[in-house]
Design a protein around this nucleic acid. Structure first.
Lengths: 142, 142
DNA sequence: TTATATAGTTTACAACTGTAAACGTAAAAT
DNA sequence: ATTTTACGTTTACAGTTGTAAACTATATAA
C-alpha cells in the first residue's frame, strides 16, 4: 500500500488544485460548492491534511495562502492503479482491462493508441500469465 | 463511494475465502501466515468484520464455524475499478488503460480479446470523449 | 476605532482500519 | 476429573477519514 494515501475527499481537493494553481482555500471551496455540500471549515481541514502529508505546498500572499500541488495528477492516478492491481492475481489483469474498456467511453485515438500498444505487446506476450500469488489466495495451480 | 468497502487487510481474507470455501478461521490464518505476520486474533477480527459487513457467511460445524463468500471476487474487483474510474476525468480513462497495459504482463489470448473489443468499440467511438467533471476539477474546456 | 468578515489553526468526535490482548466456553488430552 | 487447547466474542487502542465548530489573529468596513 502506498503511504500518504489520498482519501476520496482529499481527491476532490487535489483535482481542483491540479486544475488551477496557485489557488486559495476560498476559491477551492467555491468550486467544490457545485459538487459537495461542505462547510468552508471542511475544505480547510482537508487542505490542512494535504499540506501535512506533503501533497500541497503553501505560499503566503498577504494574510492568506495560495496552494499548489506537490505531486502530479498522473503519478497519483498511477499509484491508485498500482493499488488496484495489487489486490488481484496477475492473471486477472487482462480481464480487468477488458472490463474497464467495456464500461467506458474512449475516443477513436485512444483506441488507436491501445491497438498499437497491443500489437507491440503481442511480440513477447506469454501464452499464460504467471501467477505470483501467495498459495491459497487465488485459484491458479501452483 | 461504495458502501461496505473492503479494506486492504480484509481483501487478504476475502481472497483466501474466494479461493477455498467453506473454510475455517484457522485455515485462513494458516494460508496467510505465508504472507502476513498476523496473530490468529487479527485474522479473527477481520473475519468478524467481514461477517458483520455481510461479505462472509458463517455455518456452524460443531464448535467451529466455516466461512463462505457472499459476494463474488469479480463483483468486488469491479467495484474497485468503479471507484478508481470515479476519481478521474472520463477523458483520462483511455490513457489509464494504456498505463495498466504497459505495466502489466498479459497473455496472448488476453490481447486477442482486447483487440476484438477495440475493434468493436471503434464503430461508435467518439472523436473526443465528453468530460462530465464538475467545472474546475479538470482542465477540459467546459 | 470598534465591529465584522476572513484567514488559518486547534479541537472534536464518530466511523473505519490495523493490530491484537483478554475473556468465556467447550472440547480434548492427561 | 482436571488441565490444556482451540474457538469465537468482546474489548482496546492508536491512526485515518469525514465533517465541522470553536478559536485566534488580522484586515476591512462602518
Amino acid at each position: 500500500m502506498h503511504e500518504n494515501q489520498i482519501s476520496p475527499s482529499e481527491w476532490e481537493i487535489m483535482r481542483v488544485v491540479w486544475t488551477t494553481h496557485p489557488i486559495t482555500s476560498k476559491e477551492i471551496n467555491d468550486i467544490l460548492k457545485e459538487k459537495k455540500e461542505w462547510k468552508l471549515a471542511t475544505t480547510k481541514t482537508l487542505i490542512g491534511r494535504l499540506v501535512k502529508k506533503g501533497l500541497l505546498s503553501t505560499e503566503q500572499k498577504g494574510r492568506k495562502y495560495e496552494y499548489s500541488p506537490l505531486v502530479s495528477e498522473k503519478e497519483s492516478i498511477d499509484e491508485s492503479i498500482d493499488d488496484l492491481l495489487d489486490q488481484m492475481c496477475d492473471t486477472k489483469v487482462g480481464r480487468s482491462v477488458e472490463t474497464i474498456l467495456e464500461k467506458s467511453v474512449v475516443s477513436k485515438s485512444d483506441l488507436e493508441r491501445l491497438e498499437a500498444l497491443i500489437e507491440k505487446k503481442k511480440a513477447d506476450a506469454p501464452k499464460e500469465v504467471k501467477c505470483t500469488c501467495t498459495p491459497g489466495q487465488c485459484s491458479c495451480v501452483h
